[in-house]
Every structure is written in C-alpha cells, then in structure tokens.
C-alpha cells in the first residue's frame, strides 16, 4: 500500500513544519525556514502539487505550512 500523491505531499510538508517549529520555537523564523527548505529541495512539480492543495484549502496541513506558503516560490506554469 502506498500513500496517494496528495497525502504524501501533505505529510512531507507537515514533517518539515514539525522540525522547523521545534527548531526555533515557532513564529516567523519557522515559517521562513520551512519555505527555504522547500524552495531548496522540492522540485517544481512537487511545489505545484503543494500549491494546488493549499489553494484548494485541502485539509490536513499544519498551520505553519499555510503560514509559510507566501514565502514558497511558485513554480513557473510549465517546465
């Protein structure tokens, strides 16, 4: 059994959120850290999926992920 694409993206974003929140005790620094990590390591396709979920107000995200969204680079429309 494999987690479906959307659930996996949500889980991965939440995992990063958990670390960033604990690293800096929450707040703006955590959101920026989360965004920087995703910008550095997530391929545009993954970021596109992330934004599709965030824009559709998908359930299951840690609040910090939504907080970080404005700092995450939106991928160009097509590769």
């Amino acid at each position: 059994m494999t987690t479906s694409g959307g659930d996996k993206i949500i889980r991965m974003a939440n995992q990063i959120a958990t670390f960033m929140a604990s690293r800096s005790g929450g707040g703006a620094e955590a959101a920026e850290g989360l965004a920087a990590h995703i910008n550095d390591f997530w391929e545009p396709r993954m970021r596109r999926q992330l934004f599709e979920l965030i824009d559709a107000e998908a359930a299951g995200f840690e609040p910090l992920v939504r907080e970080a969204a404005p700092h995450i680079r939106r991928p160009a429309e097509t590769a």
């Binding site: 694409g5 996996k8 550095d40 390591f41 997530w42 391929e43 545009p44 396709r45 993954m46 991928p75």
Partner: peptide, 18 residues
C-alpha cells in the same frame, strides 16, 4: 536553477505520469 527530483520523487512522478 531549480532543484530536480530525488529518487522517491522520481518514482512518485512516474506513477503520476510526468
């Protein structure tokens, strides 16, 4: 300038068809 796919991401993208 954009990061590429890591192995697990490649496999996920393959299943999704991209």
């Amino acid at each position: 300038p954009e990061p590429g796919l890591r192995i697990p991401n490649m496999l996920d993208a393959a299943v999704e068809g991209s």
